[in-house]
């Protein structure tokens, strides 16, 4: 059997199955699953032996569904269900939702040049699988080290190569599962559905929180030299004579306290500088957080080595905005008068 034939016939089977499933949408999940799990298998067998389309040989999917319902010993639906008459309760809601989804499906599908939107999404399936693998890789790296969420490129710690390898493995696994999932039985398929939902929810929340890298640590963007900030456990302030300043408080340009450090001293006790007050509210952090720890340098003249001045202190500059404003003072009146 040629490949082309297999894929067109599997599409036909899928569409027929979907239609039968839609007609049995009022069945409780468990019952419907039990009944419909093997239907793709069965219809594929039917189609493979003999001539004609499924519709020609088995009749309309709705009729097939009703026969199935009866044979499985389930209550036949009220006759007016098919006629679109009064429906009750959950079945009613389910049917309306299905109807509506079906119409949207066709309407949107025609906009993008497909009979149904579902057809387009199906055609894009390998793309979804790759995306899923990518998200799994991001997640894997993120669990190991949250600082790895550096944009959308998975990297393990600082190793982009490890991140790349994880991505390749995750994408390959995702595609492998994607290609085989139609042949899985109910429980593996359910497990995959749950996994997909978890991944989707995680990805959306991570996206919503701006890449997911939420930390209480603060990195001054102007300094840009803490990378990553996690190796900073304490901050020592020295004045220009090399004397250590204890009890210093750090703020950013907006007056927000800068909180950097681990909150635990070398002896394992909580850092006095980061202690919370008696009423449970956080006190302002004072540096060094652990005045008892020796610190990097001995205090005193000439003690501080000026090893790596990453940025030379810039002289206070005059405002650069002064020039551009002067050139366009004459214009505004001419434009505003025409709008009225």
């Amino acid at each position: 059997m040629s490949n082309g034939m297999t894929s067109t016939s599997s599409l036909e089977v899928e569409q027929y199955c979907d239609a039968v499933r839609a007609a049995l949408v009022d069945l409780p999940g468990e019952l419907g699953d039990d009944l419909l799990d093997d239907l793709p298998y069965h219809l594929t067998e039917v189609l493979a032996e003999g001539e004609g389309s499924l519709r020609e040989r088995l009749g309309e999917p709705t009729v097939y569904a009703e026969e199935l319902r009866a044979a499985a010993g389930l209550e036949p639906v009220a006759a007016d269900f098919a006629a679109g008459g009064a429906r009750t309760g959950l079945a009613d809601i389910a049917a309306r939702v299905t109807d509506f989804a079906g119409r949207v499906d066709v309407r949107v599908g025609s906009l993008v040049g497909y009979p149904r939107l579902v057809d387009l999404l199906r055609a894009l399936r390998p793309g979804w699988w790759v995306l899923r693998g990518w998200i799994i890789a991001l997640f894997t790296c993120g669990v190991h080290d949250r600082s790895s969420w550096n944009g959308l490129t998975p990297s393990l710690g600082s190793s982009a190569l490890a991140g790349f390898c994880i991505t390749v493995v995750a994408v390959a696994a995702s595609v492998w599962f994607g290609g085989r999932s139609p042949r899985f039985t109910r429980w593996p398929r359910r497990a995959i559905a749950v996994g997909n939902a978890v991944i989707a929810v995680w990805a959306l929340t991570a996206l919503a929180s701006g890449g997911g890298a939420t930390t209480t640590y603060y990195v001054d963007p102007a300094a840009g030299s803490y990378s990553p900030p996690f190796d900073v456990s304490d901050v020592y302030v020295y004045d220009q004579n090399g004397n250590r300043v204890d009890g210093a408080r750090l703020f950013d340009q907006n007056g927000n306290p800068i909180q950097v450090g681990s909150g635990t001293c070398q002896d394992g006790n909580p850092a006095p500088g980061a202690e919370t007050g008696a009423d449970g509210t956080a006190r302002a952090w004072t540096y060094p957080l652990c005045p008892g720890d020796p610190g990097p340098f001995r205090s005193g003249p000439g003690a501080v080595r000026t090893a790596s001045p990453t940025s030379t202190p810039s002289a206070p500059t005059s405002s650069p905005r002064a020039t551009p404003t002067s050139t366009r003072t004459a214009r505004p009146k001419a434009t505003t008068s025409t709008t009225r």
Binding site: D34, L35, D37, D38, L39, H42, V46, R57, L58, Y64, A65, E67, L68, R69, A70, A71, A72, G73
Partner: peptide, 20 residues
């Protein structure tokens, strides 16, 4: 009917009378 047979097979399988 095909659906009758398939439905019966599923029901007998769920009831534990058949293996697949």
């Amino acid at each position: 009917g095909d659906a009758s047979v398939y439905g019966t097979l599923r029901r007998l399988f769920q009831a534990g009378s058949l293996t697949t």
